[in-house]
Design a binder for these strands. Structure first.
Length: 794
RNA sequence: GCCCGAGUGGCGGAAUUGGUAUACGCGUUCGACUUAAAAUCGAAUGGAAUCUUCCAUAUGGGUUCAAGUCCCAUCUCGGGCACCA
């Protein structure tokens, strides 16, 4: 018998697949009558290091499902692409002078080669690359649609700025006060920047989350990120000035307890509130507050602030209350101003204590609540609140807002934590924003027939502190004529997340020269049925939903949610349980595992067996060997004719088919592999007939496609997914579990057709010696047919 | 601080709807084959008592005929958010 030689058979099948392209999605009539299934992974950033084991987990999940549905004769779309814009290629260019264009090409070629070495069932004719002008042409087109509708707009404001990468960052890209790419502390810088108005879809993004077949964890994270809260907007008149201050509060019921106002240091009205006496102190405070980094703010939550010198009138009490400024009030949320109710808000309480401001209690908590703190934030009955005395807080929230509305000094208001999406980047290696400015600095869209705006070649990729990208150095490129008028191009590029916000739709018609996506193809294939990834819970996965809703509104997409089912898998860590990293030297290279002789089938099957898909897992080299032994046993079973002998395993076979099929439907890959291992172990003991081996090869194919193909060839069989027959799922006899008071005391065997004969089963159980010992005096019996179990209560 | 998860042998984990806890794999031990080793095949493997029993699913309580699974409290770990008014 020939030995199992994975490297040899994998080369054979891979070259066959390369030639015959069996994974091409069927188009037109060919696909008729078949169920369409559109699967994708979050496409990779092709780094110079090549595939890592995390990619392999990601791609293999998609591959197992792709093959599972393909074997069921579905019409499957499983494309592949590369997310190529970004800092690493640009930083590499700055360091080495190798252009990002050329480094990207090298890396893509390597990624493609490695993905092919893993035997993935990819439709290679649909490859996309976000830095290809044929692709970003349409990213720019998407931008222009948003621009036309006012959903891409410019705003001058304080933004996160990374002093190392010399670019602004979105809120989602600042992690713990540091740049998500280089880890350096970020600063605030006042700049005019481009934004996408994602907040226009806040409610819909929130409301439709519950309908998605996504992990709860991700749904909760998105809900928290959107952070909807209901409350009121209230006008406070400024004493002796023709000015008023709007505040947002979720607790209008506490209005009578508002003893001062606090404005964010960046609040535009601060200038008008200062007096000769307070001016210099206020200006100093603003200067330090703006300079303060996020880290400093987090580390030191001690309240700081200054009095502006002005007073406002509390509309409920008519009293004068001082107006302060403090950095604990954030400009980006609500109105950037609050009414402080120190008796019923922790933060206001701290501030009042520090600056010796009045604390006025307006809520009496009910007696059964144990809370001795001076600041009570719960519910209760109003006191010191004029005509609202005695009203409970929940009713008062309605009542006071109603009163404010009648006085025209306030109204109901909903706010969100989510901000608009900052998309300008002062970097070279990104999609140019298709905008030009006229002499007055007014932005104009580059006409659609002049797209794509191609990235110009430059000599020096280095960004600087000018706040403009290296594109500004391409002097000729900067000039553009629109409608006969000479203009200057925008030099910012788009956040990479913009490029990945629509690629799932490009895949349906990747070579379309006239449209971002083809109308017919999108109707047939999209939305994506299963999307697999390990990151981007809020950023990418929220942006795709936002663009989907926008393009649905514009009539370009016939659906409002882009991803039906999301599989969010865990990371693979080093054998020591720590994150793999070059500096720690604990990186497992998947290509090494293959080339060490294990082959791609073992690697794939191992990563599916490593543990539940949603959890992190640690690499275990010995377990890789265990999976290799399993595949070896499959080989032996099929090719060693001495072991294969006539046997009757029809029940075992049908049970296995059902279990593996069910497990794949619920994405329980580790137990599917375990079931196949059990099956093989049983066949070793019982002997196998041809049908057993055919079933094995077909069920194994999603995990180990090369080996399974070799087996199917030898067995002269197609690969159509096997179907179990209900009538073969039952053995002739059934084991009944007999418990006494819930404890196992005996097992009795009956004929399967006696399963409903509770009387006989009970009688048999009570005859059992061991049962008699424990249940001499049975009170009642409970028979659970479904569980094959009889419990005797004694 | 707030919001989610999770805690099962020496290890990774299984138990899908409340119904035989520890599937499968690793490791370990023994045996077969071999001059020998590797590979392969077979057997055993939660703990304690020792022949069928007791104790075990982070800890303490509860509901139930029956709890890893449900409820309450506590501890530990992981993730997310973090002055969002």
């Amino acid at each position: 018998m020939e030995r199992y030689d994975p490297l040899k058979i994998e080369a054979k099948w891979q070259s066959k697949w390369e030639k015959e392209k069996p994974f091409k999605a069927l188009e037109g009539k060919e696909g008729d009558g078949r169920q369409k299934v559109y699967l994708a992974e979050m496409f990779p950033y092709p780094s110079g290091a090549g595939l890592h084991v995390g990619h392999v987990r990601n791609f293999t999940i998609v591959d197992v499902l792709t093959r599972f549905y393909t074997q069921q004769k579905c019409n499957v779309l499983r494309p592949f692409g590369y997310d190529t814009f970004g800092l690493p290629a640009e930083n590499y260019a700055i360091k080495t002078g190798v252009s990002p264009q050329s480094a990207t090409e090298t890396n893509i070629n390597n990624f493609r080669k490695q993905a092919k070495r893993l035997g993935y069932a990819i439709d290679w004719d649909r490859e996309i690359n976000t830095s290809d002008p044929d692709y970003y042409h349409w990213t720019q087109w998407c931008f222009l649609q948003l621009f036309k509708k006012g959903l891409a707009y410019q705003k001058e404001s304080y933004q996160w700025w990374c002093p190392v990468d010399k670019t602004v960052l979105a809120n989602e890209q600042v992690e713990g006060g540091c740049c998500w790419r280089c880890g350096h502390e970020v600063e605030k810088k006042k700049m005019k920047q481009w934004f996408f108005k994602i907040t226009a879809y806040a409610d819909e993004l929130l409301d439709e989350i519950d309908s998605l077949d996504w992990p709860e964890k991700i749904k909760t994270m998105q809900k928290n990120w959107i952070g909807r809260s209901e409350g009121a907007e209230i006008d406070f008149e400024v004493k002796d000035k023709k000015e008023n201050i709007k505040v947002f509060t979720t607790r209008p019921d506490t209005l009578f307890g508002a003893t001062f106002l606090v404005l964010a240091p960046e609040h535009p009205k601060v200038k008008k509130l200062v007096t000769e006496k307070t001016k210099s102190e206020v200006e100093d405070y603003i200067k330090t507050a703006v300079k303060k980094s996020e880290i400093e703010r987090q580390e030191n939550k001690e309240k700081t602030g200054v009095f502006t010198g002005s007073y406002a009138i509390n509309p409920a009490t008519g009293e004068e209350i001082p107006i302060w400024i403090s950095d604990y009030v954030l400009m980006g949320y609500g109105e950037g101003a609050i009414m402080a109710v120190p008796a019923h808000d922790e933060r206001d309480f701290e501030f009042a204590k520090k600056f010796d401001l009045e604390v006025r209690k307006v809520i009496e908590k009910s007696e059964n609540i144990e809370d001795d703190s001076l600041c009570y934030c719960g519910e209760g009955e109003l006191i010191n609140s004029g005509k609202f005395n005695g009203v409970n807080t929940a009713d008062a929230r309605e009542g006071i807002v109603f009163w404010l509305e009648s006085q025209k000094i306030g109204k109901k208001r909903v706010t969100y934590k989510m901000r608009d999406w900052l998309i300008s980047r002062q970097r070279y290696w990104g999609c140019p924003i298709p905008i030009a400015y006229d002499k007055n600095g007014k932005p104009h869209a580059i006409p659609e027939d002049q797209l794509p705006v191609v990235i110009p070649e430059v000599e020096d990729y280095k960004p600087d502190d000018s706040g403009r990208s290296a594109l500004a150095k391409a002097k000729d490129w900067l000039k553009v004529t629109i409608d006969g008028e000479e203009m200057t191009r925008e030099t910012d590029t788009l956040d990479g997340y913009a490029c990945s916000s629509w690629y799932l739709w490009r895949y349906v018609s990747p070579h379309d020269k006239k449209h971002a996506w083809d109308e017919k193809a999108i109707k047939y294939w999209a939305p994506t049925d299963i999307y697999v990834g390990a990151d981007h819970a809020v950023a990418h996965l929220l942006y795709v939903r936002f663009w989907c809703k926008f393009f649905a509104d514009e009539g370009f997409l016939p659906f409002r949610e882009p991803i039906k089912k999301l599989i969010y898998h865990g990371y693979i860590n080093a054998p020591d349980g720590k994150k793999m990293s070059k500096s720690k030297g604990n990186v497992i290279d998947p290509l090494d595992v293959i080339n060490d002789g294990y082959g791609a089938d073992t690697l794939r099957t191992y990563e599916m067996f490593i543990g539940p898909i949603e959890l992190d897992a640690a690499w275990n080299p010995r377990s890789v060997g265990g999976v290799y032994r399993f595949l070896n046993r499959c080989w032996t079973l099929c090719f060693d004719t001495e072991i294969s002998k006539k046997a009757n395993n029809i029940v075992l076979r049908n049970k296995t088919i059902k279990k593996v099929t069910d497990d794949l439907h619920r994405c329980s890959f580790n137990t599917a592999v375990a079931t196949l291992m059990e099956y093989v172990n049983e066949l070793y003991k019982l002997g196998a007939e041809k049908d057993d081996l055919v079933a094995l090869a077909k069920l194994l194919k999603p995990f180990a496609p090369h080996l399974a193909s070799e087996m199917l060839e030898k067995l002269d069989s197609d690969d159509e997914w096997p179907i179990w027959d209900e009538k073969y799922l039952k053995d002739e006899t059934i084991e009944i579990i007999v418990q006494v008071n819930g404890k196992l005391r005996a097992k009795i065997s009956i004929n399967t057709d006696e399963i409903d004969n509770e009387e006989k089963i009970t009688a048999l159980a009570l005859e059992n010696e061991n049962v008699k010992k424990f249940a001499g005096n049975p009170k009642k019996t409970i028979y659970v047919k479904k569980a094959h179990l009889l419990n005797i209560v004694a």
